[in-house]
Structure formats: C-alpha cells, structure tokens
Amino acid sequence: MTEELNEFDRAYNELFRGRALNTQHLNDCKKIWRAALTQRPAAQTEREAFAVARAFALATMASEEFVRCKGMPTGEADEFMMTGPDLTDEHATACVDHLKWVGECVAFDTDDGVLVRLGDFTLGSLS
C-alpha cells in the first residue's frame, strides 16, 4: 500500500506541477484533506486521507475539463451545451453529476440538450 501511495505521489506531482501554483486548487485540496481527516476510519492515516483528497480534486478537475472539451460553448462565460451522444454517455453524465455534487456547476434540461453552467455554487460562495 505504501508503494502505491508513493507512486501516486510521484505521478500527481509530475502531472500537476504547473497547476500547483494555482492557489484555488491548493486551497480546495487543503479543505478536502481536512474533511477527509475528520471523516476517516480509525485505521486510515493522514497520508491516505491526503491521497483521497487529491483523488477527489483530480476527479473534479477532470470532470470540468471533460465538460469544457465535449460541451459546445454557448457564447456565455463558462456555459456549455451537452447534446447528442453525450447525453447517453455514462461518463458524461457522471462528470456532470460529480460537478453538481461538489457545487462546481448547475445543469438545466433544455429542448436542445443539457445546459451546464460552471462556477462556484457552494453555500460558502453565498456569504
């Protein structure tokens, strides 16, 4: 297990070295890491909790990139239309559901497909 975590650390650091300067990403990782520590089973270590937090942050970034790449821009900032085969694709649906769950987007069903608006839609953003 330790070797797997070390390998994950190396891959994460190599892949996201440039993104590590992004303050928002670091703050998100820290918040998720703290939450993972408070909700962890007794046998879980801090290192495992941090790995879970980073995996969660990676899933969020990958979901957002998927929507940005596969969705058609509507002309509005951070707004994309998911149409056609993307509506039936299980991965696309999972990405949008994940973003809604973490408060990174809202989605509206329209006649043309699903309109996805990216942004901060958490309760913390309202204060």
Rank of each mutant, 00 (worst) to 15 (best):
A107V: 06
A107S: 10
S127F: 14
A51E: 00
A35N: 08
C95G: 04
H25F: 10
T88C: 09
L15N: 05
C95I: 05
R34A: 14
A53L: 01
V52T: 08
L99W: 00
N22M: 08
V102D: 00
G75Y: 06
D89H: 14
M81F: 08
D120H: 11
L5S: 03
E64Q: 14
C95V: 06
L115S: 10
L58P: 00
E90V: 14
L126N: 08
R34I: 14
D28P: 03
A92M: 07
A107T: 04
A36E: 13
A11H: 11
N13T: 03
A35I: 02
N6E: 13
M1Q: 12
V52L: 09
T93N: 12
D28Q: 14
A92L: 02
R40Y: 01
E79W: 05
S63A: 15
A11F: 11
A62I: 05
G119K: 03
F8T: 04
V114Q: 06
K30P: 00
G103Y: 02
N6G: 13
R34L: 15
E14I: 04
H25L: 15
V52A: 09
T93Q: 15
E79G: 06
A51C: 09
D111Y: 02
D120S: 10
A107H: 03
Q44H: 02
G84I: 02
S63R: 07
D89L: 12
W33Q: 08
T110E: 09
A51M: 08
T83D: 02
Y12R: 00
A42R: 04
D9V: 06
R34P: 04
D112R: 06
C105L: 03
S63F: 08
A42W: 00
G124A: 11
L37G: 03
S125Y: 04
Y12N: 01
A20G: 13
L37T: 04
